[in-house]
Design a protein around this nucleic acid. Structure first.
Lengths: 113, 113
DNA sequence: CCTATAGTTAGGTATTTACCTAACTATAGG
DNA sequence: CCTATAGTTAGGTAAATACCTAACTATAGG
């Protein structure tokens, strides 16, 4: 297990992989769909004008990023989102916002002098 | 101007580009730095063990994504973050969270029956 | 005017990504 | 048992990415 995975904890992955996964519109469509509830691979594939193996490749990336989990029962694989990976991304962004606010405050202090 | 850019409004860019930009650790380091205040290209380059032209390439991507703005005065280009691009990404994520909560509520209703 | 500094452009390479088709495996259900 | 369905694997291509070096432009400041 690499350092990034260890740092992110419990099945999550690095921010690199999470943001990378979200950078593609097909993958975001999959995530959007899964936020409304679990779905099988072919359900996910249906609205995406793309061959099945390509969808699978996207799913692999989504799993690697930790955004999606899946389990196979019988011949159907059921996929669901894992909200903690999404949390990670959101937290990174909100920390940036905090940093910006602090910078803004320092600027105010500076202007008062 | 393409449809994605039009849709995102005022100098922002598509979510594709924003998430793509955030997927690279060097680019996130640049964003983190700029959240603490504006900086020149060489200031941004200094902590990144990488040749200047590579840094410039990252900056171009960051500008294309709308995350960073820059202007040149004299021979120094000053870069600053543009928070609206970050907002876009954050809003996409929080809409996903809302969708998940709605799905969860529907599940509760279902279980009550 | 000259030189050091700040950034830029051109162009090249190795790797990764996003797709595809074809062929395969495994299980549900008649 | 046989066939249709659900997913998987293998393998190939075109384009994008992340770097690099070398060479260039433009401006600050003595």
């Amino acid at each position: 297990m690499n350092a990034a995975v260890v740092a992110s904890g419990q099945g999550g992955a690095s921010l690199d992989l999470v943001f990378q996964a979200l950078a593609d519109p097909s993958r975001r469509a999959i995530v959007e769909r899964l936020c409304r509830g679990p779905a099988s691979v072919s359900e996910l594939a249906q609205p995406l004008e793309m061959a099945l193996p390509s969808v699978l490749q996207h799913l692999q990336l989504l799993e690697a990023s930790g955004l999606v989990r899946s389990a196979k029962t019988g011949r159907v694989r059921t996929c669901r989102i894992n909200s903690t990976a999404l949390d990670q991304a959101e937290r990174w962004i909100s920390r940036r916002r905090s940093a910006m606010e602090r910078a803004f405050d320092r600027l105010g202090d500076f202007l008062k002098e």
